Computed example of a mutant assay.
Amino acid sequence: MNRILLTGATGLVGSHLLRLLIDDSRIDEIIAPTRRALPEMRKVVNPVEADLTDLLGPLETSLDTVFCCLGTTRKQAGSKEAFVQVDYTLVVDSGLSGLRLGAKQMLVVSAHGANCHSPFFYNRVKGEMENALRHQGWPRLTLVRPSLLLGERQAKRGGENLLAPLFGLLPGNWRSVHAHDVAQCLYHQAFLPGGERVKVIESADIPRHSA
């Protein structure tokens, strides 16, 4: 039995990944805790609670893999503290819950520029999150660092909509990437045999790691 924990299932990348996992015959069950209810879907167990931490603690089902697609912006979160809660605390808690339940690998959406020593708050928090996951001692940890994400969000981010055309013209890791490609990358990497204990996939490399 292949049982998955997916946090961030209602987000831009997470919603694409959820559909890929549902359609995969190797997956028997997807536990997707969310703050707002998902439509009823086969294979999906959807605990709902305003605070995601309250849903992770009581989980008792054994797991094989954890996917974490949580992410927000400081503006969307409303404060630095709320941003840290989503992009650091809940991601780390997802990892701890997965390890407690026997998962052997974790795959995470981070961000281009993640660096715990960055002078930029967003990048610094992402880097601190990555370091915390590294110290959890996963047998396999995959960190995917996309640049600006393209795709239709339920909650619009005005700044990203304005920047998207510009980021599409930038070179290398700065070039924008479609959320579906990020989801496909996570999905593909999860089923590769062996591999490094910690694998970092930069934004420009996402397409070639997606198939």
Rank of each mutant, 00 (worst) to 15 (best):
W138I: 05
E152V: 02
M1H: 13
P139H: 04
G11D: 10
P139E: 04
P119H: 09
D181M: 09
K75L: 01
N46T: 07
L143C: 01
D54F: 06
C185L: 13
N161P: 01
T61G: 14
A32V: 02
L55G: 01
L96K: 14
Q184C: 14
F67W: 03
T65P: 00
Y88K: 10
M41Y: 13
I22N: 12
L5T: 00
L99S: 15
G71E: 01
L96P: 01
K43N: 06
R36Y: 07
L70I: 01
L70R: 07
R36E: 09
L18F: 05
L148A: 03
T61Q: 15
A183R: 04
A179E: 06
S79W: 02
A183D: 05
A179F: 09
V91S: 00
V13S: 04
V108N: 12
Y122M: 12
A183F: 05
P33F: 05
I31R: 09
N173P: 04
T73G: 03
V48D: 04
V144S: 08
Q85V: 03
L20E: 09
V84H: 04
V109Y: 06
E130H: 08
N123R: 13
L166E: 04
M1E: 14
Q136T: 07
T142A: 12
M129E: 07
T72A: 06
S62E: 12
V182H: 09
L166G: 12
E130T: 07
D93P: 00
Q85E: 14
I27N: 13
A32D: 01
N123H: 15
Q85F: 04
S147M: 03
P165G: 10
L163H: 07
G159R: 01
L163I: 02
P33A: 00
A50L: 08
V109C: 11
G71I: 00
C69E: 01
G8I: 05
R42H: 07
T89Q: 03
Q105H: 09
Q184G: 10
W138A: 11
A103W: 00
S25H: 04
V13D: 01
H188G: 11
M129I: 06
L133C: 02
H16G: 07
M106F: 02
H16Y: 12
G71A: 05
S15W: 08
T53S: 14
L163Y: 07
E130I: 10
P47A: 03
V198L: 09
P193C: 07
C185R: 11
G159Y: 01
L166N: 09
T10F: 13
I31P: 11
T72D: 10
E81G: 05
V84Q: 03
P207E: 14
V182S: 11
Q105N: 11
N161L: 09
V48R: 06
P33I: 00
T7Q: 14
C68Y: 02
Q105Y: 06
